[in-house]
Design a protein around this nucleic acid. Structure first.
Lengths: 228, 228
DNA sequence: CGTTAGGTTGAAAAGCATCAACCCGTGTGG
DNA sequence: CCACACGGGTTGATGCTTTTCAACCTAACG
């Protein structure tokens, strides 16, 4: 576990910020656990006793709204933490977490993190920045939900996940389409139709690989108001 | 200012958590400022040099999306802070802030807060909790936006702002309707129509006062799925 | 092979937005 | 003191967007 932990540390801003002693302390108390796809990591409203770091795979955070719909709040992958706020507060979980794919998580018991933060100012500060970063992501989501059409949100999602290749951009859809749809706040059918509507703009889709032949067209789409 | 500051402190979780010395230090560096309705407090992308606390009135936080729409991210009032994350990071503002009504703000220079947090663990922890609380509110917003219809969001907004009176609940709409609409992610016309649609459920509207004669009906509305 | 989960497609309906007209308090200037 | 303009809000007609429901496809798996 020692070597593994060193590797893990490199990919996690929180652990990088911790001093050597803090890191050693967290290493000893941390548990590594594998989850199968679909497995529950924790339930909404359950007592939070730990913070989680994703080592591999995808985790979805969600809530069941009063009307019974599941609202997908976020999807996290390698190097990202989740459940920090509830864990540190030791409160009831403000959302549930499921394994969206098979995944490996590092589980850090809340009391250990609290104790570590109390003695390590660097960690304390890193926690604050981690929280700020989480807030930033949520603000981005809200901006998209309130001011962009479904088509624009799909296009923005593609652009955000695109990598540069020889001819245009390539996107490897990171997880299943029904999760992408839920993340964007639309139904799977609408996502499918939105992707079709992008084809005339030079977007080709085959399975979970999307090619964007002409990024400028998408840029124009994102810039034009709903009326156009 | 000394007496005023003591009063202010009582209404602000952040200042309450600070030790006496820290508080005195912040008091000396804090500036009080009045803003007129519509006045800009800071612009999106401007350099953040302070954190703000609302003493009186309403402040709206917003972003202009790439397509030109303004996305209302939040509205804050007495006792609430905003711009903490950007202020502490000293980064570019991740949103703009305007006075939604005439308002008084306490402006805390970022360097002072940073220095205060470095020496006062209580303040440091309070900052973390303030950030967590902000995250909670954003998660609530996202849940509503992704899983509730416009009508349900309006009903939920009313319930969230209602006070108990002799016959049913009373809501005093806290700010202008076009701001409520923007907050809920709908157009003013849709808000107006949604309120009309609630009338048969025992909701009466006169100006900015809403009476909910039969809260159970709204509860049922919030619980029923979109299909019903 | 048959089954199943994830995805796509089509037709119809619902939900919001848009545009335009209108209403009504408020404040202003003649 | 009245006329007028103005901002905020409402209402109606219409159209676009997204959902719903159903059928269907296809790759993966037992």
């Amino acid at each position: 576990m020692t070597d593994t932990f060193a590797l893990i540390t490199r990919s996690c801003a929180l652990l990088r910020a911790a001093g050597p002693q803090t890191r050693e302390r967290l290493r000893r108390s941390a548990r590594l656990r594998h989850y199968h796809r679909g497995e529950t990591i924790f339930l909404h409203q359950s007592r939070a006793q730990a913070c989680h770091l994703v080592l591999e795979g995808w985790v979805k955070l969600y809530r069941i709204a009063p009307n019974g719909c599941e609202a997908l709040l976020g999807i996290h992958t390698r190097g990202e933490t989740f459940g920090l706020a509830d864990g540190l507060r030791g409160a009831a979980r403000s959302f549930g977490a499921d394994a969206a794919s098979d995944c490996d998580l590092l589980i850090l018991p809340a009391p250990e993190i609290r104790a570590a933060a109390a003695t390590d100012p660097g960690l304390q500060e890193a926690l604050l920045h981690e929280s700020f970063a989480a807030t930033d992501r949520l603000l981005d989501q809200i901006t998209d939900l309130k001011s962009c059409s479904a088509l624009q949100r799909v296009a923005a999602f593609l652009c955000a996940h695109a990598c540069v290749t020889e001819d245009g951009l390539r996107v490897i859809l990171p997880f299943e389409k029904h999760l992408i749809a839920a993340y964007l706040g639309i139904k799977p059918e609408s996502l499918s139709r939105a992707l079709s509507r992008l084809k005339p703009l030079g977007v080709t889709i085959s399975r979970d690989i999307v090619l964007i032949r002409n990024p400028e067209a998408l840029d124009v789409l994102l810039r034009e108001e709903a009326a156009a």
